[in-house]
Each structure stands twice: as structure tokens, then as C-alpha cells.
Design a protein around this nucleic acid. Structure first.
Lengths: 244, 244
DNA sequence: CGATCGATTGATTTTTGTCAAAGACGGTGG
DNA sequence: CCACCGTCTTTGACAAAAATCAATCGATCG
């Protein structure tokens, strides 16, 4: 089902079956996206948003040399660019990382969806959740060293994937190159390679091809100073270190 | 007037007089906040949001040693933590930087405000705008060197202050210590001091006590790869370098 | 007047980036 | 089947950026 994973496992805000049905009725089209394809370029006017069914989609801002900084990574179940519904255009690029399937929801149909104030609030929640994630990413880039950044990112991704049933809490498939990880963590891909080796040597994480295996989740969370409270998940699984 | 600056100068979204009156009626209290005071601590349940009348308010996330990363800086006219209206609690701290006056708007009154779908949309816009700013900050931290980060931040702040009438486009009052700037840019305060000296020596910016003077706005924007499109301002003042 | 906070500077270490070069691996076409 | 190609990964040597450590300095405030 298309909306299976939308806000799944989010504390007190998961959509009801009726709401999910309403969203599915609003879908105009299912689109299959090849890997490494730009979906939306910065500045372009937008008439629809997209719900990810499977695959990875990223939001990036490029510097003047074309080097990218990931400002977000979207997993299955994420409503990508609801932001554009409010803003009409966005100031960053959206691109597929892997092959992906997305459900297209035209903005004029979202107008109808938000007539239901409960659903409107959930859609608003979804954008505010993105903002909370952005803040966690700011902490990651501003206060952590390279290894801490990777550790923090992997903990976050593990927790998010677990919420939608794509991680068992320690192992998950994540089809990112080392260069993608570098663009996420704001380091060079060469340095990312060194960090990944260190994580392996310290027995914290192994990453073989696209399988990530977190050997010691608590240690990794400590290394990345990860506190998953900002994900607003139902339970605290995948979030071994709590602030409170 | 309390709501004078709310979404002022924002492209096609500035509130009408009627909407502003509605917001003002929703204000329960004007609060005077001393400098360096925590308004809201991470994890606390929240029953109101705050509109800044004057002063600076910051959002920060602390690492395990208590070192802070600024994840946002709020200027007069900003609605701080509308996010909390949707999320009920937030995952970061909110604190005054300077002395500040804020208008408190209880959440139950926001419930009434958003019955007006146009105003609801503007409040939603305000939170999504915060998210866009977060993304610009991610770019800043992820892809710019220390001087670029400072340049980018000053350009952004100049543009935002100009939108609410607090900068003439080159000079403005910004009551931040070098340590604050360091916490914004993710560097040590010692390094920030050196960067500020360099900016002065290169004739780009002078910062004497709390007066910031941008000598060559276009050069500073170039140095910080600043493109202010994400601020959704009415005109392009304070944004000399455009991507399109 | 001492005390405190912020700004400033120099010397040194650590982290990360840059440059250069191979190695591994899968897919494709001959 | 195998050689070739491109992409991704890995490694080493070196350079640059930023952090750390250690003092001072200067203004403001009780």
C-alpha cells in the first residue's frame, strides 16, 4: 500500500486508515525514477509533492563548484517536499540516490486534503519533523568530528528505517556510496573512507556493499552523541542513549 | 505594534492588517526577557509560542560537554517555536541572547487562529521558512570554510534585518559575542577571532562592539557563496548574488 | 581598585583536505 | 569466455585548516 509507511511509528501522529485512503485517492500517478536523477531543480515552480514508496531520495545544495551538500535524505514513507506546497518553489535540488518509486500528489489535491484539519495538522507535522531533523544535522556538522558525524548519521538512519520496518535495529540496507556519505557529513570522500575503516577497526560498524551492520548500537550512539528524541518515534528502539 | 514585523517583506505571504489584529488578540502577555536566559529547555512540554518584538533569541543544541551549536537565530518579527505548536515539545533549547521582549501566544489560541485557512497557511509558511533557513545553515557548515561561514551568516542576517527595517543594507546592530558567532559557525571562538580580523584586514567587514558594517556586500556574498533566494523576500535587496 | 568577561595573540598539535596512484568489482562488447 | 571500462574503494605522502594550550590585554562594573 502506497501510504503504508507515511508517518509510521511517529508518536501520536500516525495517520488513520481513513486519512491514508484520502491521501491515496489524491495520488495522480506512480512514478518510477532511475538512480541518480534530478527530480526537482532549485528555483523551479512546483505543482506537486511526492510520497516515497521505495528507494532513497536526497535534498542537496550545491556550491559554486558544483560540490553538493546533502541537507536531507528521504526514506520510504517520507513525504518529500510538502515544503514546496507551502513555498511554491524550493531553494535546493531534489534527486534520487537509488532507483525509487514515488507517488505524485498534485498540490491542488492537497488543498482538498487539508480541509480535514486533522490531516492538515499531520501534513504540517511532517514538515516540522523535517525541520527537527535539519537541526539534528546542524548539530552533527557543527559540533561533531568526522567519525562522530558518521556515527550520528548511522544511528539516525537506523532509527528511521526501524520505524518503517526496514531495519531490525542493528542491520539494514543502505545503498549509499562513500561519496554520498561524504556529502552528507561534510567531509571529503577520501576522509570518509578512512573513517569507515576506523569504525570497522574499532568494531563499531561494518559496511559491506550496501549492508550496514551496527555491532554495538550503544557505543555508536555514544560516539555520535545521538539522542533520537527529535524523531518523535513511538518507542525508543534504535535510540539507546537518552538525555533524560 | 507587536506584529509589525511578522513575515514582513516576505514574498506574497505578509499578513493582512486583519490577520495581524487576530494574532495580537491572541497574545496573552508581553514578556521581558533578560539576556542569556533559557526560555525553553529541550524536552519540556510547551503550551505557548512566542513572537519576538525586539532582541535576539537563539535555538541551540548542546553536546555532552555542554558546548552549544546554534541551530537558529531569531530576530524581531520571528515567530519562535510555532514548531512547538505542532510538536508539543521541542528537542533543542531556546534562549535569549540579548535582552528581549516577546509576545506570548498560548497554543489554544493558535487553534482558533488557524480556523482561518489563510492565516493557518501563513503560520505553516513561517515554520517551513525556518526549515529553509536550516538548510542554508547546513550548506554553510557542510561546504564552507570558516571565513565563508561567517560571510554567509552576515549576508543572511543583513538580508533578514533589512526585511524588517533593522539594516540599511550595509550596516546593522548585532549584539553577538565572538563566542556566539563561533557557536553559530561551528568553530572555536579563538578561530572566530582570527577570521574576524582577516575579514577586517581584507576590507570586507568591520565589527566594532555590536555594529556590523559590510564594506563590500557583493564581495562578502561571493566569499560566502550567499544566495538569499531561500529567504523568500519581496525584493532582492541584501542579496547581490543571484543564482538564476 | 580588583574582578570579570570578552577580545587578542603566539606556539604547537590535531584533524582534515589535497594530490597521486592503485586495487576491486561488476557490466559490456568482442 | 575474457579483456576492457567505468565506478567505487583504498592507500600513502604531504599541505592546509582549525583546534588546543597558554598568556595578555582592555573595558566595564560593583
Amino acid at each position: 500500500m502506497i501510504t503504508d509507511k507515511f508517518l509510521k511509528g511517529r508518536r501520536g501522529i500516525s495517520p488513520t486508515l481513513v486519512e491514508r485512503a484520502a491521501i491515496e485517492k489524491a495520488v495522480s500517478e506512480i512514478r518510477q525514477i532511475p538512480p541518480r536523477t534530478i527530480l526537482i531543480e532549485a528555483g523551479q515552480p512546483l505543482r506537486h509533492s511526492a510520497l516515497i514508496i521505495d528507494g532513497l531520495v536526497c535534498r542537496t545544495i550545491s556550491d559554486r563548484d558544483g560540490l553538493r551538500q546533502f541537507v536531507g535524505l528521504h526514506l520510504p514513507g517520507d513525504f518529500v517536499d510538502l515544503h514546496s506546497y507551502v513555498l511554491h518553489h524550493i531553494e535546493h535540488d531534489i534527486a534520487s540516490v537509488t532507483q525509487a518509486r514515488v507517488a505524485i500528489v498534485p498540490h491542488e489535491r492537497i488543498d482538498l486534503l487539508i480541509a480535514d484539519t486533522s490531516l492538515a495538522r499531520k501534513l504540517w507535522f511532517s514538515t516540522v519533523l523535517d525541520a527537527a531533523m535539519h537541526r539534528a544535522w546542524l548539530f552533527r556538522l557543527g559540533r561533531l568530528d568526522a567519525m562522530g558525524r558518521v556515527a550520528h548519521f548511522l544511528c539516525e538512519t537506523n532509527a528511521r528505517l526501524k520505524a518503517v520496518g526496514l531495519s531490525d535495529g542493528r542491520r539494514f540496507v543502505l545503498d549509499l556510496t562513500q561519496n554520498d556519505l561524504a556529502e552528507i557529513c561534510g567531509v571529503t570522500s577520501i576522509h570518509m573512507n578512512r573513517i569507515i575503516r576506523q569504525l570497522r577497526e574499532e568494531g563499531l560498524v561494518t559496511m559491506r556493499s550496501s549492508l550496514v551492520e551496527i555491532a554495538r548500537p550503544e557505543h555508536l550512539a555514544a560516539r555520535g552523541q545521538f539522542d533520537g528524541a527529535y524523531l518523535y518515534l513511538d518507542d525508543d528502539a534504535g535510540d539507546p542513549v537518552r538525555r533524560t
